[in-house]
Amino acid sequence: MKNKRLRNDIILSVALLVLAIAAWGVIRFTHKTGEFAVVEIDGKETARYPLGDDMSVEIVTGDGHVNTLVIAGGRASVVSADCPDKLCVKQPAISRTGETIICLPHRLVIRIEGESGVDTAS
């Protein structure tokens, strides 16, 4: 009885791990290099910047918070933010369609989209 449950525990854990890695792989390899970094605040698009042009912009969200978006070498990243956890700054630079950098406290989403402007991920 005890061994059976232990075996079930292992099956469950391994299955979840395999599922997670498979899902990550699918996400990683089905998305192509994107063209635009789209800025969304509160679920609404406020700006889009071509990934081809190196630039830096300060994004001011509704309640006056500031995140600095940098595009360099075709990749977008957030280099600074005035939120307490700075998770968006820690998130890696993005360049493929459907990839996002999300700042939960500021309700800010940076999303990569393809040339048509249609989000191929959804």
Partner: peptide, 21 residues
């Protein structure tokens, strides 16, 4: 957030859930 893309974090969170669990 009204953003479905957050689901992309699921693999990482499942992974961390298994380890911490």
């Amino acid at each position: 957030m009204g953003t479905r893309e957050i689901a992309y974090w699921l693999p990482a969170l499942v992974l961390s859930g298994v380890v911490t669990g």
